[in-house]
């Protein structure tokens, strides 16, 4: 049994090493969405898969999409609270979480004045850190 434990630990450590070298997302190839009319802050990585974004906005109109970069969103349970808290805001019409990208898409009604400090506080109340964002009006 101890041999199994040692083998498991070696495998775990080697996996961590490989993951950190690859930047934590494994190998994936994203098409970037063109946010030419977007507002961004804190160096947010605006690249977002076109297909995922298109699916998200397919049933939306007259909204503004905020794409938030999040630190610490490593599991479904971690993100669950974010979604629940966001939906308590009447101005939020749709939320989509991407664990792979560490991003959350939030659709706000167009009249909402988006305040990144408010968004940061929402994420912090769930124990995660919002590190950057972009806004795209559609």
């Amino acid at each position: 049994m101890y041999k199994i434990l040692v083998m498991f630990m070696v495998f775990t450590v080697s996996s961590v090493s490989a993951m950190e070298k690859s930047g934590g997302h494994g190998s994936h190839n994203h098409e970037s969405h063109n946010h030419s009319a977007s507002e961004s802050a804190n160096g947010s990585d605006i690249a977002f898969p076109e297909k995922m974004f298109s699916e998200f906005i397919s049933d939306l109109a007259n909204v503004q999409i905020v794409i938030v970069d999040v630190n610490g969103m490593v599991c479904d349970f971690c993100a669950r609270g974010i979604e629940k808290v966001l939906y308590t805001d009447d101005a939020v019409t749709k939320v989509r979480v991407s664990l792979e990208l560490g991003k959350v898409l939030i659709a706000y009604v167009s009249s909402k004045k988006v305040d990144f400090e408010e968004i940061k506080n929402i994420f912090l109340s769930n124990g995660q850190n919002a590190t950057g964002y972009i806004i795209k009006k559609i």
């Binding site: 199994i4 498991f8 495998f11 775990t12 996996s15 479904d76 993100a79 991407s98 664990l99 792979e100």
Partner: peptide, 22 residues
């Protein structure tokens, strides 16, 4: 406890962890 996810699930997927407990 040590655990390894055999696949990376997305949000709302079923997430599986193979774990070892001492």
């Amino acid at each position: 406890q040590l655990g390894l996810a055999p696949y990376l699930g997305e949000y709302n997927d079923i997430h599986t962890w193979v774990m070892l407990k001492a």
